[in-house]
Design a protein around this nucleic acid. Structure first.
Lengths: 234, 234
DNA sequence: GCGCACTACGTACGCTGTACGTAACTAGGA
DNA sequence: TCCTAGTTACGTACAGCGTACGTAGTGCGC
């Protein structure tokens, strides 16, 4: 009964195909693609084992042959989107390369808005994540310093991107046309906030809101945040 | 039927007590405390409506009189821990004050390890969160620049803290004694990682792991990250 | 060709959030 | 003072979740 492992394993240490028994009908890539498609279209909460199985066209429990636990499905999804990173020959200018990496990650997160929510140090060791990390380190070859510092730099850049995109997505959803219920909720939230600020209990917050009514330059915020972090390492 | 609002509201815009009907048996503070207690002891996933109601000693559905949706329970939790922030008279040195704020937030997150997972721009407008934000802005009074930049600074500091503590908690859980199953899972994960790195496909990653086998100085990583971000604004 | 390891999948269990109905209670208006 | 509307309290019920388990059917390695 190797199929139902008593000992928890990492999905990547299991071979995708063992050679015995019928050919698996789906590949891990198929499954990841189905899950990602659902998450992109309907949000991460819509990704259930039943739903993914339905998308693939197989029974719910058949999915458990490929994916022992739901957490492993997330792992597959994270790996799949990690694979969307375009890798290039490092230019020799680590700063420029890291900026390019950061922009690419940002675009990735905008394409898959569920990504920031799933971002966690746990998922950092899938094959495509390792390739991505190796690429970052290659870009940092010209960077003078120990690998420990390079790792910190990569982590910080990823952190900044995650934080910024998290904010960007939140404000985007606040602006976008929403189902009535969510629309109303946002309205209620903003109305409440306005009332609080107007109450005079938070003078600086009030001043901050009064300061500039122009649209927020999210692109600029991201660029500045990134620059500042890289400056900190230079 | 105001009790069952058809229009979604922010919980903070509802008065805790209306005056009509029987006295509520519990305060929002009671409920938040119960939920936080459970989350601290057994993790965020253990926080269910039934469980919190049980902790309070009331029926499950009674809880819905106080908390219309589970999301509002999270909002209560976030507000409660925001209230744990100790506020002080700004020193006049915004850098020192922000470092102090960051350290306090970090300690808060270590006390409540579920906090990074719940951290989201959505929960930034509860009463205690507003007090905290106002306090940060007060600390930044000596900072020369528009409020927009101050807000960015606060967001960046919070982002850094969240990112770092997320890593800290992950490595802590990797070290801590765990239930056998999770222990085995970590072992499997590390074994797999070791095999991959040893395969030679990721030379820089291998070099990074070989570089220093000493224990990671998480405190130092946090300190450096914070310093770099603040440097970026100075 | 035999047997075993694998795929496929239906059923079932315990858990979740929560809609809804009902009974008890209490403060405000007549 | 009593009436009644708005509240609290909570049991029942439902749809959905992750997944343990049992049972067929299939095809590779010996």
């Amino acid at each position: 009964m190797a199929g139902r492992a008593a000992v928890p394993e990492v999905i990547w240490s299991r071979p995708e195909r063992t050679g015995r028994g019928p050919r698996p009908a789906y590949s891990r890539a198929d499954i990841a693609a189905a899950a990602v498609k659902i998450a992109d279209a309907e949000g991460l909460d819509a990704v259930s084992m039943r739903r993914v199985a339905g998308e693939l066209g197989c029974g719910t429990m058949s999915l458990y042959n490929y994916v022992p636990r739901k957490e492993d499905l997330y792992e597959l999804m994270m790996d799949a989107v990690s694979g969307e990173h375009e890798l290039w020959e490092p230019s020799g200018d680590w700063r420029a390369d890291m900026i390019r990496v950061a922009h690419q990650t940002r675009e990735l997160m905008h394409r898959h808005t569920w990504l920031p929510r799933l971002m966690s140090p746990v998922y950092g060791f899938s094959p495509n994540a390792l390739r991505y990390l190796e690429h970052c380190l290659a870009c940092l070859d010209p960077f003078e310093g120990p690998y420990g510092t390079k790792m910190e730099l990569v982590a910080m850049v990823n952190g900044v991107v995650t934080t910024c995109v998290g904010n960007e997505i939140a404000t985007a959803e606040r602006t976008r046309s929403l189902p009535w219920s969510e629309e109303q909720e946002n309205a209620a939230r903003i109305a409440y906030l306005g009332r609080q600020v107007a109450s005079g209990a938070y003078p600086r917050l009030a001043a901050s809101f009064a300061e500039d009514a122009g649209p927020i330059d999210l692109e600029g915020v991201f660029e500045r945040a990134l620059t500042r972090v890289l400056d900190g390492f230079a």
